[in-house]
Amino acid sequence: MAIDREKIIEQMSQIEIVPDENGIIEGFNVLVNQLPAKFWNTFADRLISKADEDMVEAKEYLLYNAAHECGYHTGYGIITSEEWDAIVAPMIEKAPEDVLYGAYAVFTAWGWADSEIVELVPGEKMVVRAYDYYESDHVKYGKSSRMAAYMIAGVSSAFMELAYAGEYDPKGSLIGKYECKQTKGIEAGDSYGEFVVTKA
C-alpha cells in the first residue's frame, strides 16, 4: 500500500474552503458548510436524551442515516475531486482498498475524526478506529451509557458502499447495502472509538 496517510492529512487539511460571492461554498459535488461542532453535538445529544426510551433507537437511526447519505454523496464527491486527483490518486496502487485507506485520511483531514482502518476484508468487513472525534465532546465528566458517534458510523457504511456496492448512483439506491455498528466509544469511556462495517 502506497497511501501516505500523514502526507494526505497534512495537504488536505490546508485546503482553504472559501465561499463564493453569494456566501455559498461549492466543492466536491456538494454544497459545503463550516459550522461549529457544538451545533451538531447539541442537537444530537438533546434529541436522544429527551426522547422516550422506546423512541431512542429510531432517533439514533435517523442521525446515523443522515451521515450515511451524506457520506455516500460527499464521499463520492471527494474521491472524484481535483484535490483527490492531485494528492491521493497518485498513491493508489490497488483499488478500491487504497481508495478506502485514502478516504479515511481525507476524513481525518476534514476534521470529522482522527480515524483509520485497522482491518479490511475486501467486500466483507471493515474495522475503523477513531482516536479523537468531536462527537464525543458532549461528555464532560464520567462516561456515557450510550455510544453516540452516529456520524462516523454512518459515513463508514457509506464508504464501504462506495468501495464495494457497485457504481455510484446519484439517487442513492445503493445506500443501505452495508451497516455499521459502533463497538467502542471515547464518550463511553474507551480510549478510542471502534466501528465495524459489514454487509447489511
Binding site: I17, F28, V30, L31, V32, N33, Q34, L35, P36, A37, K38, W40, F43, L62, N65, A66, A67, E69, C70, H73, T74, G77, W110, G111, W112, Y134, D137
Partner: peptide
Amino acid sequence: GVLTVRHCHHYSSLY
C-alpha cells in the same frame, strides 16, 4: 478558536 467541522448539504438537509 471555535471548533468547526465541514459538512455537506445532504447532512444539513437531513438534519
